[in-house]
Nucleic acid binder design. Structure first.
Length: 471
RNA sequence: GGCCCUAUCGUCUAAUGGUUAGGACAGGAGCUUUUCAAGCUCUAAAUCGGGGUCCGAUUCCCCGUAGGGUCACCA
């Protein structure tokens, strides 16, 4: 029995998937999703996921882009298993050997071109097309059939040292033992000619799966003119890698349950290539934002605090003003801020719009704003602030927390009208029309600062000397 | 244009030869301990069109229509 299992195990080919980017631009999220699906499929089958760099286009390939591809994938957490990443530009001797063999066997030939176009060679290597029908089973689309006659004798190399994409792909997939080719739908019509080449070199045919495309809002192919399309741009916009992975997985695939929030490990377990959609999916950043927020809520508190600290401390505003913010304060405001943002970039926004200033410095008052909208003038604000101050002064430092502050002020607010009491209280602490509730604020700011701010609001806006400000 | 693929709320999608066609995001309304946020409740919103097959099609078939992909000495 055991022997039988071992036998089956050894017989079954280990799954090998691959991601072969050409470094001609920053990593597009469509390509990132392709990488993700390859990664998920390999992981769930305990296979391997390999990278290689397709840099046979010497003009457009750039080191900068290659670096970006690696950085983006590692940021997303999509690690590859091959230690040595092949660069096709360095493998011409390998391709040359196959090219020579094919020519020797009469399966390819050197062709004199009659009317070479601009930049085209007068002599190229063409594949001798057997003009057959090619059928293959796509894991997503089912049986697909093409008549290869229409391809003619297609070019497989510009010369013996300069092979073309279709050729190098097939050789490298073969040599690295790729079993499953999972790629975008735009590759589907390349498949027959690659199968033809594969047959010619005696390579086993891989299993294909063609993914639907990611579309822009107008249903056209998502490209640069539609805004952010590269992984790095989403990273810069403050998205979490796990959220982007989660969203990308849901574009064109779903588990058949109501679950929408996944960790990458959950995706590895749940993902199913055969459940992938056939039609293209429109990219919706609103939903991405929502998913990002869900992941924000799930992330370890310490990680969020670290990022918050980094963003606040490195902001121009905080640096210019020379504010020193204690770790204790960071920790306190973190839970308030995380509730109010969808991406990290929202933190940066809050800083520049001064929504965070009142945590670190004395607020500026627009005295009229101390007035609750249902009150005729500032006199009630003055009375209430006075009274709140008196109440809070009786609450000792040791007992200064949100719960107790609420317990002390709430009955009074209930009695006198919540808005009339709480609005000026909150405004005195924040100086803003919008902010967290006064109890939270008072507990974050601490006893001393809270009392000082109430005092200051009374002095600046409500004392006799401030009469001029009264309506 | 040839070849290929696709078609359910605005968007991502679920479902079945028989359902009030479900969920989520976004939208609208409301509730909550003032504002903001969060949370909760409710709400509006879809089977591209036409033919078949069938007792019955959103589901199966055909034809349209629309959209997409691809037709390189780019990858």
């Amino acid at each position: 029995m055991l022997r039988r299992i071992k036998y089956l195990f050894s017989r079954r080919k280990r799954v090998v998937t691959r991601f072969p980017p050409s470094p001609t631009g920053f990593l597009h999220i469509g390509r990132a999703r392709t990488a993700l699906f390859n990664y998920l499929y390999a992981r769930q089958n305990r296979g391997s996921f390999i990278f290689r760099i397709e840099d046979t286009d010497k003009v457009r390939s750039k080191d900068e882009y290659e670096k970006d591809v690696f950085e983006s994938l590692s940021w997303l957490g999509l690690s590859h298993d091959n230690h040595e990443v092949w660069h096709q530009s360095q493998r011409t001797s390998v391709y040359k050997k196959y090219l020579e063999n094919l020519i020797g066997e009469g399966k390819a030939y050197i062709s004199k071109e009659e009317n070479p176009g601009e930049g085209e060679r007068a002599e190229v290597i063409r594949f001798k097309n057997p003009n057959t029908k090619i059928k293959f089973t796509d894991l997503i689309r089912g049986d697909v059939e093409f008549d290869t006659t229409e391809l003619g004798d297609f070019v497989i190399a510009r010369d013996i040292n300069d092979p073309v994409y279709h050729f190098t792909v097939v050789i490298d997939d073969f040599l690295s033992g790729v079993t499953h080719v999972v790629r975008g739908e735009d590759g589907i019509s390349n498949t027959p000619r690659q199968i033809l080449i594969g047959k010619a070199i005696g390579a086993p045919e891989p299993i294909y799966a063609h993914l639907p495309l990611i579309l822009a809002a107008d249903k056209s192919k998502l490209s640069g003119r539609h805004g952010a399309v590269s992984v790095r741009e989403f990273r810069e916009k403050g998205y979490l890698p796990q959220a982007l992975v989660n969203y990308l997985a849901l574009l064109g695939w779903n588990p058949g349950t109501d679950q929408e929030i996944f960790t990458i490990d959950e995706l590895v377990r749940t993902f199913d290539l055969s459940k992938v959609q056939k039609g293209g999916a429109v990219f919706d950043e609103k939903k991405l934002r929502w998913i990002n927020k869900e992941h924000l809520k799930k992330m370890p508190k310490a990680d969020f605090e670290k990022e918050l600290k980094r963003r606040i401390e490195s902001s121009e505003r905080v640096k210019d003003l020379g504010w020193k913010i204690s770790d204790e304060m960071m920790e306190k405001i973190a839970s308030v801020i995380i509730d109010r943002i969808e991406t990290y970039a929202d933190i940066d926004n809050m800083i520049t719009t001064r929504d965070l200033d009142f945590y670190f410095s004395e607020p500026q008052y627009d005295c009229l704003s101390l007035k609750w909208k249902e009150e005729p003038d500032l006199s009630s604000a003055e009375n209430h602030l006075d009274f709140i101050r008196a109440l809070l002064e009786k609450l000792p430092e040791k007992k200064w927390n949100e719960e107790n502050i609420r317990a002390v002020v709430w009955p009074y607010a209930e009695n006198q009208g919540r808005g009339a009491v709480l609005w000026p209280f909150r405004y005195a602490l924040s100086g803003r029309d919008k902010s967290p509730n006064p109890f939270t604020l008072a507990s974050i700011l601490g006893r001393e600062t809270t009392l000082k701010r109430i005092e200051r609001a009374l002095e600046l806006c409500l004392s006799d000397s401030a009469d001029a400000n009264k309506p």
